[in-house]
Computed example of a mutant assay.
Amino acid sequence: MKKWIALPVLVAVLLLGYLAAGPFIAYNAIREAVQAQDTAELAEHVDFPELRRNLKLQVDDYVVRKAGADVQSSLLGAFAVRIASGIAGGMVDTMVTPVGIGALMEGRSVWHRASGGGITDNTYETAPTPDRLQEADYGFESLSRFTATVQSEDGQPLTFVLSRQGLEWKLTDIRLPLGSDAESL
């Protein structure tokens, strides 16, 4: 009789352990895919439609806040803000690809990543990029949301948000440092 009770308890403990370790496993897989520049592996751990939506919302909010109330109150200003938001949304669509996400996570530009990296003294050799993702501050925001925060090259916090989708964890948001002191997109 005790065996029948122990088996479901064991299964429940193993399932809870897997759910707790899931975001760490997914984040480590993302980090390894970025280091190996394996875009196919990276794409398996990213929910691209959700990530695009979240980044567009952040960029739109930034554009509107940067424009200010004075610009938005005029018809021409509101039209300009709308055009700027559309251009910024197009840029997000262009950047949210496996190559673009990998470059952002490495702290490099997309062109830098696509061309193979920095040039060293030997023009045929590329400089290795530092693994900024290794020293992240981790934390659960809820049972289905996990964050990993790293410092960008200029010292700004860059937060990667993984969300649980069933038993899988996927990258669904990147909280960009678009505060009031940011100068450019």
Rank of each mutant, 00 (worst) to 15 (best):
K2G: 15
W4R: 14
I5N: 13
I5M: 10
A6I: 11
P8C: 08
P8A: 05
L10M: 07
L10Q: 05
A12N: 05
A12R: 04
L14E: 04
L15H: 06
Y18E: 08
L19V: 02
L19M: 13
L19E: 11
L19S: 08
A21V: 03
P23A: 06
I25Q: 13
A26F: 02
N28T: 14
A29L: 03
R31H: 02
V34A: 10
Q35I: 09
Q37H: 12
T39P: 00
E44P: 03
H45Y: 08
H45N: 14
V46C: 01
D47V: 10
D47C: 06
P49C: 03
P49H: 01
E50V: 12
E50R: 15
L51E: 03
R52A: 07
R53D: 15
R53P: 05
N54A: 07
V59W: 07
R65Q: 14
R65V: 10
K66N: 12
K66C: 06
G68Y: 04
A69V: 11
A69D: 13
S73M: 09
S73C: 00
L75V: 13
L75P: 12
L76S: 11
L76N: 09
G77H: 02
G77F: 00
G77K: 01
F79P: 07
V81F: 03
I83T: 15
A84Q: 13
S85I: 10
G86D: 12
G86L: 04
G89D: 06
G90A: 04
V96D: 00
V96M: 08
P98M: 00
V99A: 12
G100F: 01
A103R: 05
A103L: 05
L104H: 09
L104K: 07
M105Q: 09
E106K: 09
E106M: 11
E106H: 04
G107D: 03
S109A: 07
S109Y: 08
V110Y: 09
W111P: 13
H112L: 10
H112M: 14
H112F: 08
R113V: 02
S115Q: 10
G117W: 02
G117Q: 04
I119V: 13
I119E: 13
D121N: 12
D121P: 07
Y124S: 11
T126K: 15
T126E: 10
P128M: 05
T129K: 09
R132D: 06
R132G: 08
R132C: 00
L133A: 03
L133S: 02
A136R: 13
D137K: 14
D137H: 12
F140V: 06
F140D: 02
E141R: 09
L143F: 10
S144D: 15
S144Q: 13
S144M: 09
S144Y: 11
S144G: 13
R145G: 02
R145D: 12
F146P: 03
F146S: 06
T147H: 03
T147E: 06
A148W: 00
T149S: 09
S152P: 11
D154F: 11
Q156F: 09
P157T: 05
P157S: 03
V161L: 01
V161A: 07
V161R: 06
L162C: 05
S163R: 09
S163F: 00
R164V: 02
R164F: 05
Q165D: 13
G166I: 01
G166S: 01
L167V: 14
E168D: 15
L171C: 07
T172D: 02
T172N: 06
I174P: 01
I174F: 02
L176C: 05
L176P: 08
L176V: 05
G179T: 08
S180K: 14
D181F: 08
A182P: 00
A182R: 15
